[in-house]
């Protein structure tokens, strides 16, 4: 299992849409939606989405993709996530932390993420999402590294001329 081999072809999102945009100066059109970067101790990733919702989905996929080949995860259970935070970075921290919590407390491994809506209302950021996966079965699920927690360290959420870029570091 290598994080790079994770579920590009198994995610419900249509990555190819992103390939049609011509005037992209921020990253070239062949760049994958999920990139794992070198970091001395932990897990650093960068993801690109056409929308902020899609970028959040890829961030979640990057986190689980580092732990397991998400192609081996079936979609038998779906949990709903509903969060409110003061800013977008807090929302990302809370979203990934919530998924990590559900993974460990409910013992469900996720491989599919559908962020339905992220919006700003009255100075607060709201997120509604669904995460799908199945109960952990260590006979079948081959985990690599574990993610302990999400950090704010070098966290970037940025609007680019083609969509959104997210960078984050997870403590492993």
């Amino acid at each position: 299992m290598h994080p790079h081999n994770n579920s590009r072809n198994h995610n419900h999102l249509n990555h190819d849409r992103a390939h049609d945009r011509p005037n992209d100066h921020t990253h070239d059109s062949r760049s994958p939606p999920i990139e794992y970067l070198d970091h001395p101790a932990d897990l650093k990733f960068r993801v690109y989405g056409e929308t902020i919702e899609e970028a959040f989905e890829y961030a979640a996929l990057a986190m689980f993709g580092a732990m397991i080949d998400t192609a081996t995860v079936h979609q038998t259970e779906t949990l709903k996530i509903d969060l409110v935070a003061d800013d977008c970075e807090d929302l990302l921290y809370d979203f990934l932390s919530e998924l990590l919590y559900l993974f460990e407390a409910e013992e469900i491994v996720f491989g599919w993420f559908d962020v339905k809506r992220i919006e700003e209302r009255c100075g607060k950021y709201h997120l509604i999402a669904c995460a799908s996966g199945e109960e952990i079965d260590t006979d079948r699920h081959r985990f690599g590294i574990g993610v302990k927690a999400v950090t704010f360290h070098e966290m970037v959420i940025e609007r680019t001329d083609r969509g959104y870029l997210i960078q984050a570091i997870l403590d492993t």
């Binding site: 290598h2 794992y36 970067l37 070198d38 970091h39 001395p40 492993t172």
Partner: peptide, 9 residues
């Protein structure tokens, strides 16, 4: 630690 997990893999 001095080397990344990615590089190690």
């Amino acid at each position: 630690r001095v080397g990344s997990r990615k590089k190690a893999l």
